[in-house]
């Protein structure tokens, strides 16, 4: 339990450190440029490599950072489970009326009697609603 917790803390720390490093490098990289584009290219035209780096590299880097921020948590956490989707068991009936045929843990509903057999001769309940999700 403790080792799992420490492993999880470690992995989260590494993910956080990696994200911070990438963002920092991306943000400060222009400061390390040795010279401006105009110095290297007196004609004022941008070289193809520089154009690719600026117009493709930067958007790709931004997209990568966003992707990292979005997906990094899933590497260290389990996916959320849905109560309703996870239901695979037998029927559960909860009622305070233990003497009725619907006592807690009943679930004899899947018997040989069809619902119409059971309901025959009994007043059909008049109210209620139906819904789906």
């Amino acid at each position: 339990m403790t080792s799992e917790l420490s492993r999880r803390i470690m992995s989260r720390s590494l993910a956080a450190a990696g994200t911070i490093a990438v963002v920092s490098i991306a943000g400060t990289a222009p400061a390390f440029a040795s010279g401006s584009v105009a110095d290297n290219n007196p004609t004022g035209l941008m070289s193809p490599g520089t154009a690719v780096l600026i117009f493709l590299g930067i958007p790709a880097l931004v997209a990568a950072v966003i992707w990292l921020l979005a997906y990094a948590p899933s590497w260290t956490r389990k996916a959320r489970t849905s109560d309703s989707d996870a239901f695979t068991g037998d029927a559960l009936v909860v009622s305070s009326d233990a003497d009725s045929g619907m006592a807690i843990g009943g679930g004899d509903f899947g018997s040989t009697k069809t619902p119409m057999d059971i309901a025959s001769g009994i007043d059909v309940p008049p109210g209620g609603t139906s819904a789906r999700w």
Binding site: L92, V94, D97, G101, M102, P115, P125, G128
Partner: peptide
């Protein structure tokens, strides 16, 4: 009296009505 059933309803609303009818007196 409130009852909660969580499980398969083979015949939809008919199943639910039959389930309520099972609780006869109440």
């Amino acid at each position: 009296t409130f009852k909660v059933y969580v499980g398969q309803l083979r015949d939809g609303r008919d199943s639910a009505q039959a389930l309520l009818a099972q609780s006869s007196s109440e």
